[in-house]
Design a protein around this nucleic acid. Structure first.
Lengths: 129, 129
DNA sequence: GTCGATGTACGAAACATTTCGTTGACAATA
DNA sequence: TATTGTCAACGAAATGTTTCGTACATCGAC
C-alpha cells in the first residue's frame, strides 16, 4: 500500500498549493502576501483553508514554532496528473488524443515546445508497445 | 457581440451535458435512465439540475409538449476547450507543453492516435507562426 | 508588567451544489 | 368518472466550499 489517495483539491486549495510549490514551505502570512499581489483575501481565510487542507492531508504542518510552517504533501506533477486524468474522464470520454489535440490547437506553444513534444512522441513510439 | 460567456459547468452538470451530447435532445426521464446504468439517481434530482442548467443558459428547453425536451446549448468541443483552458491556467501555469506532455506520458494513446497527433504538430509548425 | 502586533483556534455566516419530498396538473385507462 | 402513473414546479434539507468575526495566546518594545 504505497500511497494513499488524496482528495482532489478544490479551486481555492489549488491556488494555495501553487504558491507552496513555487515558494516551498511557507507560513500563512507568506502565502497571503503572495496571494494579495493579485486579489484581496483575508488572513483568517487563508489560515482556515490551510488548516482544512492539513486535515485533508494535502499539507504538512510544522508547528514547533509559534508561527507554523506549511508544506505541500502532494507533488505538483502528481496533482497535475490527477486533475488531468479527472478531466480526461469527465469531459473527453477518456480520449487522450482528443484532449491533446484540443490543447495543441487552441493554445500557444512555442516552436521549441512543439519540438519537445515531437521528441516525446518519438520516445513513446520507440519505447513501449 | 457574437457569443455570450456561459458559466463553467459543475461536475453534475457536465455529466448531464455528456448524455445530451451523446443522445441529442432528450427528456428528463431519458437522461435519468441513461444515468442509472451507472449510478442510482432520483428523477427530481435530475429534473432540478436540468432546470437550473436551463436558467444558467447551458440548456435549451422545448416545453410545447407536456414532457419537456432539453438540448445542450453549448457544443462539446467548446466546453472541452473551456475546461481545458481553465485547467491549463489553474494547474499548469499556462504551459500547454507541460499539459500535453503529462497527457501523453501518463495515458494511453494508440499508435494511430500518436500518428494523428504528430500530423497535427506538422500542420501547426508549417501553418502558423 | 503593559501594550500593540502577530499568531492560532473556533464557530458561524454566506454561498454554491446536490438531493429529494411534496404538491398539483395532466393523461391514459379501467 | 375514479384511479393510477407521469410530469413540472417548488421549497427545503444536506453537503461542501469560502469567508470572516471573535477570542485567546504569545512575543517584542516600551
Amino acid at each position: 500500500m504505497p500511497k494513499q489517495i488524496l482528495p482532489k483539491p478544490t479551486e481555492g486549495e489549488l491556488a494555495i498549493l501553487r504558491v507552496l510549490w513555487r515558494r516551498g514551505a511557507s507560513t500563512v502570512r507568506e502565502v497571503l502576501e503572495d496571494f494579495n499581489q493579485a486579489q484581496e483575501t483575508g488572513y483568517t481565510t487563508v489560515l482556515k483553508m490551510m488548516q482544512i487542507m492539513t486535515e485533508k492531508g494535502l499539507l504538512d504542518r510544522d508547528d514547533k514554532d509559534r508561527t507554523h510552517v506549511y508544506s505541500p504533501r502532494v507533488a505538483e506533477e502528481e496533482t497535475q496528473r490527477q486533475l488531468l486524468g479527472d478531466l480526461l474522464d469527465r469531459a473527453f470520454n477518456g480520449s487522450a488524443k482528443q484532449l491533446v489535440m484540443q490543447a495543441l490547437s487552441s493554445k500557444k506553444a512555442s516552436r521549441e515546445e512543439l519540438a519537445e513534444i515531437r521528441q516525446l512522441l518519438n520516445d513513446i513510439e520507440r519505447g513501449d508497445k
